[in-house]
Design a protein around this nucleic acid. Structure first.
Lengths: 195, 195
DNA sequence: GTCTATAGCTCGATAGAC
DNA sequence: GTCTATCGAGCTATAGAC
């Protein structure tokens, strides 16, 4: 039952956000009764904290897989930018960062901040490795550019949802990868990259 | 009184979003009584519609000023990317695009979509003019790159808020402008750009 | 056009039986 | 560990006096 509650909470957080994840709806989706929720968790906030921490683990694991250090740095960046995304649903953690209630609670916002920090660091590391290897223009600022690429993904979700056009995030991330490619330089002339 | 209600609604939409913009709070902030709200507007949704449309006008006017066609295209883009922004407050319209309730109502979401479309078009036009003038690498896709730059700004707000570090959006937009500069080419050698 | 009073509902949480 | 019953608060909206 505890797992069912957590799963329902994760689903509702993605669908509707924290504000609309009411205990009543969690119970209805999970099939549990009132008592179960307040037996296993301290309340709505406690359930959300546990759910958000699970989401953080899932997304962080996925990020670490994409940014595996044994993959060539530019391939990591391409995999990250061109990953398949459902623009209309949004980032499971990023969307929560838009709710004042979530940001007001360190329990709820810390996992989100940790995840973004992790991804930004992964991107910056890949950029630095690519620069060291002479594969990309050395004049860029790795950490600021990492913030930019993370922002392209998060903002891509925002403009996709706002326009109800899931392709918008694809255009945005494709354009970001295209710009990175224009800054590439292989030892022998400009490198030819598959898309 | 109608203006006071609208101003309170605009303030609360920015602070807290639509879900938490309750009639009671609007009345308390504006100083109006119950009757005034329901006399001038059809209800909470009607008030929010009017408020969002006013925000759309304000932001669209600001965008048209930044993207004035008499300004050189690259200067427009620099002005847009390097504009001062409070990363911790977020975009007045973009933040609303993260609420399911808002997206479910065409009345509320249409102004947001229109504003994003306008900005994306302004950016794309500036990029195309810069390409035609030979000021920037012609290999980029103007419309997709416009989506990317709009996403950098919107995503910059997201990561600033999530990390509680307002500088993040500045890093992201600075990096975007830096990348554009690296793709610039003036008639006589690489152009030297302030900022 | 503005006010107060209040309806009907859902919210988050608790009590107490089994 | 799970259930049903219920509380007090805040929500959106309406009624009706002035």
């Amino acid at each position: 039952m505890k797992d069912a509650l957590l799963q329902a909470a994760k689903d509702l957080l993605w669908e509707d956000g924290y504000g609309r994840m009411s205990p009543a709806r969690v119970l209805s989706v999970s099939g549990a009764g009132q008592g179960s929720l307040y037996h296993h968790f301290s309340g709505k906030a406690g359930l959300a904290k546990a759910a958000i921490e699970e989401i953080e683990i899932e997304l962080s694991d996925a990020a670490r897989a994409v940014f595996d250090p044994s993959t060539p740095p530019l391939d990591r960046l391409r995999a990250y930018l061109l990953a398949e995304r459902n623009g209309l649903k949004g980032c499971r953690l990023g969307r929560l960062a838009n709710e004042a209630e979530v940001l007001a609670s360190p329990d709820l916002s810390a996992p989100i901040a940790r995840y973004f920090t992790l991804v930004q660091l992964c991107i910056a590391t890949a950029l630095e490795e690519a620069m060291s290897a002479g594969q990309i223009d050395r004049r860029i600022d790795a950490y600021a550019t990492a913030a930019m690429l993370l922002a392209v993904v998060q903002g891509g979700y925002v403009i996709s949802r706002a326009s109800d056009r899931g392709e918008q995030i694809v255009s945005a991330t494709n354009a970001a990868w295209a710009m990175l490619k224009l800054l590439q330089k292989a030892p022998n002339g400009p490198k030819k990259s598959e898309s």
